[in-house]
C-alpha cells in the first residue's frame, strides 16, 4: 500500500489538514506584515526608527551567512546549556528523592540561585569563564535548570497513595520504584518544563553574549544597537526568534516520542 504516490498523497493530506487548522494564525500574521509595511510608508516613519518588513527580509537575505554563522554559535551554546541544565536538574531531583536531608539542604540554595537575575550573573560568568562559549553555556544552563528541577521533582512525587502501596506490596526497592514508576510519572511534568526551558536557554545564551563575546547573535544585536542599525537589530531579533521556535518544536517532537501512552501529555 505504501507506494511513493500513496505516501505523497498522505503528506499532502496532512499538509492540507494543518493548513485548515492553522489558517487563522497564518492569515493574521500575513495581515500584520502588510499593515506594518504600508503603515511605515504611509506615516513616513524613518528607517532608523522602524524599518519595513521588506527591508528587514532583504537584509536577512543579504547577510544570511553572517547571521547564520553567528546564530549557529549562539544556538550551540543554548542547546548545550539546555542539556547541561537538564542533567543537573534530573540529577538533583533524583538525589532529592533518595535523600530528604539533601532535599532540605539544597532546595533553598537552588531557590537563591534562581532569584539572581540572569543579567547580573552573565558578566560574572564572563569574568570566570572567558569570552568563549563556556560562559554562554553556563548562563543558558542556569536559566533553564530551575523550572526543570521543580517540575521533575514534583512529577517524581506525583504518584498516588495506591500506586505507592502497589510498590510496597511487590517489595519494590527505591531504585525499582524510580525507574519503573516515578520516572514515567515525572515525564509529563518534565516535558512541560522543557518546553519553557528551550526558550529560556536561548535567551540565556544571548544575554551572556551581551556582556562580552566575540561571536554570536547577541554580539551582532549589541553591535547593531551601537551603530543605530535598526534593520540589523530587527534581523537579529527575527532570526533568533525563528531559531527559538524551531528548538521548541524539536522539544515537542521529543515529547511526542517519549510520552507514547494515551492521555500522557499535559497542556
Amino acid at each position: 500500500m505504501n507506494t511513493p504516490s500513496h505516501l505523497h498523497n498522505r503528506f499532502l493530506t496532512r499538509a492540507a489538514l494543518s493548513l485548515q487548522e492553522n489558517w487563522p494564525s497564518i492569515a493574521l500574521f500575513a495581515l500584520g506584515l502588510l499593515i506594518w509595511q504600508y503603515a511605515v510608508a504611509f506615516l513616513q516613519i524613518p528607517q532608523y526608527l522602524l524599518p519595513t518588513p521588506s527591508e528587514i527580509f532583504l537584509r536577512i537575505w543579504k547577510e544570511r551567512w553572517l547571521l547564520w554563522s553567528n546564530l549557529s554559535i549562539t544556538m550551540i551554546a543554548a542547546i548545550a546549556g539546555f542539556f547541561l541544565g537538564f542533567l543537573i536538574a534530573v540529577g538533583l531531583g533524583t538525589l532529592f528523592v533518595f535523600s530528604r536531608t539533601a532535599a532540605r539542604a539544597l532546595m533553598p540554595w537552588t531557590i537563591i540561585i534562581r532569584t539572581i537575575p540572569i543579567l547580573a550573573i552573565a558578566p560574572l560568568m564572563t569574568i570566570w569563564l572567558g569570552f568563549g562559549i563556556a560562559p554562554k553555556i553556563a548562563v543558558a544552563a542556569l536559566a533553564c535548570f530551575f523550572p526543570i528541577l521543580i517540575n521533575f521533582y514534583r512529577g517524581l512525587g506525583s504518584i498516588s497513595r495506591e500506586i505507592g502501596e502497589l510498590l510496597s506490596l511487590v517489595n519494590a526497592s527505591r531504585v525499582q520504584g524510580l525507574i519503573h514508576v516515578r520516572i514515567f510519572a515525572a515525564m509529563p511534568f518534565t516535558f512541560a518544563a522543557l518546553k519553557i526551558s528551550s526558550g529560556l536557554a536561548v535567551v540565556g545564551a544571548i544575554v551572556a553574549e551581551f556582556t562580552g563575546a566575540n561571536l554570536g547573535i547577541g554580539t551582532l544585536i549589541v553591535t547593531a544597537g551601537y551603530q543605530q542599525d535598526a534593520v540589523m537589530l530587527f534581523a537579529g531579533i527575527i532570526v533568533s526568534c525563528i531559531a527559538s521556535v524551531l528548538f521548541y518544536y524539536v522539544v515537542v517532537a521529543a515529547e511526542k516520542l517519549c510520552l507514547y501512552w494515551p492521555e500522557a501529555r499535559m497542556g
Binding site: S160, E162, I163, E165, L166, V181, W261, E263
Partner: peptide, 11 residues
C-alpha cells in the same frame, strides 16, 4: 491486592 480504583500504570 485489588484496589478500589484499578490503580494501573498508564504507561
Amino acid at each position: 491486592f485489588v484496589f478500589q480504583d484499578a490503580t494501573l500504570l498508564p504507561w
